[in-house]
Design a protein around this nucleic acid. Structure first.
Lengths: 343, 343
DNA sequence: ATGAAAGCGCTAACAC
DNA sequence: GTGTTAGCGCTTTCAT
């Protein structure tokens, strides 16, 4: 049987409230404290988080809802959140929502029944109602890597708009004018698309909505969409993928069509995961400061949990364009405009 | 304030035990049941898992300890375990141990304080003492993807020995005799090495211990070790990496030395993650039936938690060699033996 | 400084 | 079929 506070009290010859006090670092006589400590040692006593949470204390557990941990960037985020949380003595319960409303609702409800102290909602939480309920009930939450506008929630994101803008600008400077986008159905992608469009506009290029397609999170789907794009009457000369996994899908699709990257077609990723470094060719992509974002998110959440009522804030981190070998000048035969660059 | 069982009882005009009975699907009069259900609805009542766990019920939470969720195979495992657990209404708390004894101990202890119902220990849990304590206290545990011999623990793994054997045999059949191995310091790698050695033996080849090196989990380290191997006086003509991430490291190391894969050097991965499909060139690797393994592990754990005292068992799943472009005939200039194959 | 006792929300006898 | 009541292990007044 596991030792309880009563066992410790008995063994130490004090009352349970004294034991409780030493557990919680409240003033206790030196002698008593010593005896209690010894008793705890001998009995290998560990206080029950359950019982203490029942009396109003925290569980030191946070819920981390994310779209799909199989995505390498998301996995990295999970790791960072976990590490940071552990530094505070908190545990992390991870739930993959697949961006499904029902799953989001179900998991939040489940975790609330288990009295988690707060939530980090990452990468495109969509169930607005659930968020509003959380807000109403004063449950601490942080939005991570989520670009939807919620006025009263602390949010940590990378500047997706700039990322999209930089990527598109880079391609435009290489002479591309027909640039496709393979996006996911989430707010980050939306922002990246907005940046992409802005870059086109700033360069007086037309925006063709047909070149913007939405994929699910699998590389297979992205691959399929890529062949579809390439089969169209007026195919793109470059494809921006909204994350590295999709980019790999695009890459495989291009290969399937026996086209060369970057000679025939330029492609880019987003996130700068290992995938983009190791692929053939290595991918031009955008680096996201994951570690910083995650640490920050955990810090803010835990502050909120501890009741330090800091003001809600939006933190926007800067992305960084990483140019590798998957992008190059637009092939001339597809354009009448002569290439400006030599080589 | 959150609604409690008392609120529901009052609203429904019954006693709390009646409410409790409907919550737990115990026989209750039709009329009462109806009223209770309605009251629960109106009050948006959710039973507190904490309180019910305190009275001896389960928390429906399992702890999943793994080496590092940033590894794509591990991430995939996490996803599968999570999905399966959710099917049973269980949550999963994930902790990355980095194979550190202290972390393993700390997390297990932490999770036990939170009364998780059981543990899945994955991919090289090393703290034997912790395992023995768990065993002694009758805490349900499953070993997943772990090859250490514990007689009394249910274990689900892939046949790592065969994986290593197949990989080495494949390379030997291509004429390689100096085959290096980059391994991790865990039991799966040990088994893979054992398979590798057996294949060498079966082909009357010498085993050179210097060709077996241990890496941490980062591709950077593997890259470093690779350049080190290649700089040695008698370098290998092939490198088996014990997982795809390390293989990517090896690949980058080879590139750094300006050698061509597979012309100058063959390399292989292990796990058949997306990395091995997208790399340049795509990697010969070994497919691991992750999904099956994980589902099985969760099934077994939950059976054990529910007290269906099934016998402990070892489940060994079959790996599958996937041959891609990263392996080819041993370059002749390094061997005096003429190549048997044409081409 | 220490202890007695009430109560957190729920379950599980046990009685009616 | 339904209600009463005693815990589960802990925290927290409130006395002493």
């Amino acid at each position: 049987m596991k030792a309880t506070i009563y066992d410790v009290a008995e063994k130490a010859g004090v009352s349970i409230s004294t034991v409780s006090k030493v557990i919680n670092n409240q003033p206790v006589g030196k002698k008593s404290k010593q005896k209690v400590l010894e008793a705890m040692q001998e009995l290998n006593y560990k206080p029950s988080v359950l019982a203490s949470a029942l009396t109003g204390k925290r569980t030191s557990t946070i819920g981390f809802l994310l779209p799909d941990i199989a995505n390498p960037l998301v996995a990295e985020m999970a790791r960072r959140v976990e590490d940071r949380a552990h530094e505070y003595g908190f545990n992390v319960v991870i739930c993959s929502t697949d961006l499904k409303l029902e799953k989001e609702e179900r998991y939040v409800s489940l975790l609330r029944q288990k009295s988690v102290d707060g939530f980090i909602l990452a990468g495109g939480f969509r169930n607005r109602e659930v968020i509003l309920e959380l807000l109403r009930d004063n449950v601490p939450i942080i939005l991570l890597s989520e670009s939807q506008p919620y006025s009263s929630i602390t949010t940590v994101t990378v500047d997706n708009f700039m990322g999209g803008y930089d990527l598109a600008s880079h391609l435009i400077s290489l002479g591309h004018t027909r640039i496709a986008v393979i996006a996911e159905d989430n707010s980050s992608s939306q922002e990246r698309i907005r940046g992409y469009k802005q870059a086109l506009k700033d360069n007086d290029l037309d925006i063709t909505e047909d070149l913007i397609v939405i994929s699910d999170s699998s590389p297979e789907h992205a691959q399929h969409l890529t062949t579809f794009l390439l089969d169209s009457p007026n195919p793109p000369t470059a494809i921006i993928s909204c994350n590295d996994v999709l980019a790999i899908g695009a890459l495989l699709g291009v290969r399937e069509k026996n086209l060369k990257i970057p000679e025939d077609l330029s492609i880019t990723g987003f996130d700068n995961t290992l995938l983009s470094k190791s692929s053939d060719p290595p991918l031009t992509t955008v680096e996201v400061p994951v570690q910083n974002m995650c640490s920050r998110a955990v810090d803010l959440l835990i502050e909120e949990i501890k009741g330090k009522s800091i003001e809600k804030q939006k933190i926007l981190m800067l992305p960084k364009l990483i140019i590798r070998k998957s992008t190059s000048s637009c092939p001339v035969q597809l354009r009448n405009v002569p290439s400006i660059q030599n080589e």
